[in-house]
Design a binder for these strands. Structure first.
Lengths: 303, 303
DNA sequence: CACACTTACGATATTCGTAAGGATT
DNA sequence: AATCCTTACGAATATCGTAAGTGTG
């Protein structure tokens, strides 16, 4: 029976590589064994098994001198390279595991991306400066699509619809506020119901925005006087500030409306909420970096 | 007590690498175990050990699906590269060990290089086409210097002087021949002694050649009529053929004198010999390729 | 309940360190 | 005699395969 199997896939370990290199440098079993924290006979056996597995004498050992054979010298270059590459791979992996390196791609609704996330990102960047951050500030559906395709690690979106393969975890329930000019009749109202709002001209977000969808659902069957539909919250700010109309937006967007001439007032409409979900793929864990950012987001929102 | 030592130098084996890659491809412990010729639990333990040593979960294993974690995907690229590099290094080494690849640098006296070695080299090249051959055709001293400096694997030279660190193994004892024109008075002599030669004009090799040194030693105290001293045997051929004089050369150089107009006759001078040695460094073995060529040279000369 | 991974466990192999052996200076 | 590598050997450790356990569709 032939024993060619050993030749085909010798089982080498990094310890053997390290031992080989130590011996090549020290040219002494005794010193190299000490450098490897091994007894000298154990070290000797380590080298012997390496030579057996490679089916070659790597060292000429005269009692008085130890030196590489020509084949050993050939292997030395490979061994050094391999050892370095191993070290680099392990240390790269370690950096990712420890959160010192990595990349996180978050998809989030524009309203969150502009107002609430910046502080979170700043805090995360401060504690994990080695993590590269990407943020896609898009509407719910494109956000979710980025997660599904694997381009984003997770999303902060508002659709609760059951997408197969995705998991939706409720992050928070966003209550709505009236936004109007300081001198608007509604600015002094104690209790703001939807019925009190509808007589006034409205600046709306476009229909595919999460803000608008939550609002429309709550208004039904009331009708508003829609003065304008816009895509960006910043535009709403400008329009309302110019006195063209009022608007209704979730708490997390109030960042856009902190201005002298404007007033923001909570609505007394319990069922008018926008739910924000953390959306991620159902199977497959997050990277260490993504998990850390996820945890921070959840902590700052709920903790 | 902290246990950071495992993190610093994890002991990985090529089997673990191979197992990892098999599982990453097959996405099934059962199939990957089969591919590695292991029982499934043993394979499972192999992966667990790898994850422990790297201090990371590399696979998300739901009972129903197995897939890489983000960190696992990161490591996959490194693992594939490392596995390939290992294979390349081992196979390169194997090729050298089996004599399918390699390089041999021989230093040899010009007289051997031109006449006797070509057939040897041809035979060696035929049986070992992957071995790159170098030949330095120099006088003894430069040949030996190439060996001492490690530039040549071994030399075929004639100095028996004791150089420290070099070993001299007698390869053959070269007897001398008269070379003269077919119509020269000596061409018909039955028994050729040195005394019969000295009256005639001599074409000599230069004093630092091995041929000349052996000859001078044997002549003493006889004196020859030195017509000319030249460096190359081929020049001797031309001079003798032109009828300018006679010469005395070792058997291994007779290749130069196989010509219609010339006669070569053995000398009856037992102590006139040139000894050819195989010179190599005392410690340190020859490469597989060099050893093979060495063995062939010894075999063809002595066998 | 069928399938796939994990845990349990006894048997086998490997690897360790101590101690003795052999060769060279 | 001193030094350095190898061999011998009992002990500790690791790894294997079989079989039982666990969780999910």
């Amino acid at each position: 029976m032939s024993v060619t199997s050993d030749r085909r896939r010798p089982n080498l370990s990094t310890r053997q590589l390290h031992a080989f290199l130590a011996l090549a440098e020290q040219r002494s079993f005794t010193r190299a064994a000490a450098a490897c924290h091994l007894s000298q006979p154990a070290f000797s056996a380590l080298i012997r098994t390496l030579e057996t597995e490679l089916d070659t004498r790597l060292f000429d050992r005269d009692t008085r001198s130890v030196q590489l054979t020509p084949e050993g010298r050939l292997f030395e270059a490979s061994a050094r390279q391999l050892s370095d590459d191993f070290g680099a791979a392990v240390s790269e992996l370690g950096a990712h595991v420890q959160g010192r390196k990595g990349r996180v791609h978050v998809a989030a609704l524009p309203s969150l991306a502009a107002g609430w996330l910046p502080a979170i990102f700043a805090e995360f960047r401060n504690s994990s400066p080695g993590i590269a951050l990407s943020l896609s500030d898009l509407l719910s559906d494109p956000c979710i699509e980025l997660v599904r395709s694997g381009k984003a690690d997770f999303a902060l979106a508002s659709t609760g619809a059951g997408h197969a393969g995705l998991s939706f975890e409720l992050l928070c329930t966003d209550r709505f506020f009236l936004v109007c000019c300081k001198d608007h009749p509604l600015a002094g109202e104690k209790i703001l119901t939807l019925k009190k709002l509808v007589p006034y001209p409205f600046i709306h977000m476009s229909r595919n925005s999460s803000v608008r969808q939550a609002l429309d659902a709550a208004l039904h069957p009331l009708q508003t006087q829609t003065l304008l539909e816009v895509d960006q919250l910043a535009t709403v700010t400008g329009m309302v500030e110019a006195g063209l109309g009022i608007s209704v937006v979730p708490a997390l967007t109030l960042f856009h409306f902190e201005r002298q001439s404007l007033v923001t007032r909570p609505l007394a409409v319990p069922h008018l909420t926008r739910k924000i979900y953390v959306v991620r793929r159902q199977q497959g864990s997050l990277s260490v970096a993504a998990q850390a950012l996820h945890d921070l987001i959840v902590l700052r929102m709920r903790g």
